[in-house]
Simulated scan of single mutants.
Amino acid sequence: MGVRELAEILADAADGVFPPADGSVTVVAQPSAREAGVVAFAAHAVVFTDEDPAWVRDTLAADPGDPLSAPLCPPFLTAFAARTGRTVNNIDLLSVADRLPGEPPLALAEARHREHPRVVRALRYREDVRVFTADGGVLVLGRGVAGRWECAVEVDPHAQGRGLGRALATAARHLLPAGTAVWAQQAPGNAPSVRAFQAAGYRPVGAEALLVPGRP
């Protein structure tokens, strides 16, 4: 692959066009000072960092494990965090869905408060954050990694098991600007969240680990 930007790689993935599944690693510049990390597709990883690409490749080559999984394994992520002075967030399933026309499938009210834990987290990692509430749930929409639209949902315990998570994830698709897609990260162990987003039409495209500024 030639020199590319992360935003371009993600846009292609949203359209179903992925880097070659040849076991290689692409290193691209960070989209901003806030964002460094790894996106792993099928047999191809993209590391976005302002560190020397030679350091990335040498560190990966030193891992005696499976080279296909090395970019998301603890040895590399630990070295990456130590090198950059960052903290590794969760390794998430990365999924994407296209915009849908029309109104969302449930009544939403746009909120102005910023105290909800989901909102507090979103403001750390996203710009242009908007918050919507429904009876029993919260939808957060904003621009995250490489400017992509991202959403997260939260369902109150008393409202779980009724399809509200799926409805909120679907609603995010109706709130996008024309011609855009929305991305979502789910912890692989959170099976209800994974099922809700896939039921809402989000397509799994890979896995992602973000390194955020500062140590715990």
Rank of each mutant, 00 (worst) to 15 (best):
A209M: 08
L210Y: 12
F197K: 00
S193R: 06
A199V: 06
P188Y: 04
Q186M: 14
L210C: 09
Y202I: 12
R203Q: 01
A207W: 14
V205L: 07
Y202A: 11
A196I: 04
Q198C: 01
A209L: 13
A196T: 08
V194Q: 00
Y202V: 03
N190R: 07
G201T: 01
G206M: 14
A199W: 02
S193E: 14
F197P: 04
E208T: 08
A181H: 12
P188T: 11
Y202W: 02
L210S: 13
G189E: 05
E208K: 14
F197C: 03
V182Y: 01
V182S: 05
A191Q: 08
R203F: 08
A200Y: 07
Q198T: 09
V182Q: 01
R203D: 00
A191V: 04
G201H: 03
Q186K: 04
A184E: 06
V194R: 11
A209T: 11
G201K: 04
S193M: 12
L210V: 12
R195Y: 02
V194A: 07
Q198A: 10
Y202S: 10
Y202G: 03
V182N: 02
V194P: 00
Q198Y: 05
E208P: 00
P204W: 01
Q185F: 09
P188F: 06
R195M: 03
P192T: 04
P188R: 00
A184F: 11
E208F: 12
L210H: 10
E208G: 06
P204F: 06
N190F: 00
V205K: 01
G206K: 09
A184Q: 02
Q198E: 15
E208R: 01
R195N: 02
A200F: 04
E208Y: 09
S193P: 06
V205H: 11
A209S: 14
P188G: 09
A207V: 13
G206W: 12
